[in-house]
């Protein structure tokens, strides 16, 4: 299953679930990453990590290891 960490530039994905075993899952949900939401990879930093993802009309910078618990359809 693909995760938000594997998105390419400009690629759009739809969230299927958030891995709630991850310690950051609570914070990720509170920032609006919920199942059914469309997300898009907007930018990557020079080291490929963190990445900037748009969700609910806002840009969120998130580390790849944390984006890994956002599972996509």
């Amino acid at each position: 299953m693909r995760t938000a960490a594997e998105l390419n530039y400009g690629e759009i994905g739809i969230i299927s679930e958030i891995d709630s075993s991850h310690p950051s899952s609570k914070r990720i949900i509170e920032h609006g990453f919920t199942p059914g939401q469309t997300i898009e990879l907007i930018n990557k930093s020079i080291f490929n990590d963190p990445i900037a993802v748009s969700v609910r009309g806002t840009l969120i910078a998130i580390r790849k290891c944390e984006a890994g618990c956002i599972k996509l359809k």
Binding site: P23, S24, R27, H31, P50, T58, A61, I62, R63, E66
Partner: peptide, 9 residues
């Protein structure tokens, strides 16, 4: 604590 970086731009 587990390290985390989630920041609104």
């Amino acid at each position: 604590e587990s390290s985390s970086f989630i920041l609104e731009l």
